[in-house]
Design a protein around this nucleic acid. Structure first.
Length: 265
DNA sequence: CTATTTGTTTATCC
DNA sequence: AGGATAAACAAATA
């Protein structure tokens, strides 16, 4: 599930616990999502440690604790964060849990494609975090930057290009399909083939979809309106909200891609 | 039994 | 160099 907007939502759950002190309660060191986690260090650093901040960037989340301890989290395909009762059991798919004064912070991930990593700094945000590229909905994600990316990677199918996290951090499978559909551009086209008008459309759709998704899904996990491709894309037999004609599901760049042949050129 | 999946990393070949 | 492709990861679901 977790792309840009879903990540914002998950991070907000732990963010609500800012100010509480936490101690590492349980960790499943054998889980794949803990492969980049130093569990011994986590026990040492996350002991009566106050949660001071929570940030997201693309599909990444960062939680800041006192004395420059930072926990980086990626939700992979099936990861989630929740705030649980102190009495709750440690489920088979829970892999990491922090015990606070009135609540438990839980990281869960059945498929274990997610990732937890610990960072230590002198207090400031970690260097890698400060160096992350602009997100598509940031003010610093300018048309110049967008044109630069398209110019340098003109040969890849646009669907694949939009999924590259160093260029479009946070965009995942459904958001890429939504952006291309709104731009009326076929997912197999390349950046090099686009007219100026199409490039403009793609840029605007990119920012619009990211901003709206964060606003709607990021707030409380609401579904976007029926006018979005999102509502029609998940199974075979859907119809395009613009044309009423059938949607198609193809594989592009190794990923399932939903698009509207009657609408996208 | 099979095939599918909202993600990333690594390897290999072109 | 960058792109295409496949595999691997692990588990649920149909």
């Amino acid at each position: 599930m977790p792309e840009l907007a879903e990540v914002v939502f998950h991070a907000s759950k732990w963010r609500a616990a800012i100010g509480q002190r936490f101690t590492l309660d349980q960790v499943n060191g054998a889980a794949r999502c803990c492969r980049t986690l130093d569990t011994k260090l986590a026990k040492e650093l996350l002991a009566k440690s106050t949660l001071e901040g929570a940030w997201t960037h693309g599909k990444l989340m960062l939680f800041g604790f006192e004395n420059g301890t930072y926990l980086e989290a990626h939700l992979g395909m099936t990861g989630s964060l929740r705030v649980a009762e102190l009495s709750e059991d440690f489920d088979r798919h829970d892999h990491f849990r922090l015990r606070g004064e009135s609540a438990m912070l839980v990281f869960r991930d059945p498929r274990q494609f997610g990732r937890l990593t610990l960072h230590r700094t002198d207090g400031d945000l970690p260097e890698f975090w400060k160096a992350l590229p602009p997100q598509p909905h940031d003010a610093t994600f300018t048309k110049d930057r967008f044109d630069g990316i398209l110019g340098r990677r003109g040969k890849a199918p646009l669907k694949s290009l939009l999924l590259q996290q160093d260029a479009f951090p946070g965009i995942g499978n459904w958001m890429a399909d939504e952006i291309l559909w709104r731009s009326r551009i076929r997912p197999t086209r390349t950046a090099a083939e686009l007219s100026d008008d199409e490039r403009n459309k793609l840029f605007e759709a990119c920012r619009w979809v990211c901003r709206e998704a964060v606003r709607i899904i990021g707030a409380d996990y609401s579904d976007p309106p029926k006018s979005w491709l999102f509502q029609h894309r998940w199974s075979d037999g859907g119809t395009c909200p613009q044309t009423g004609k059938p949607l198609v599901r193809d594989e592009v760049g190794g990923r399932t891609t939903c698009w509207s042949p009657a609408w996208q050129r």
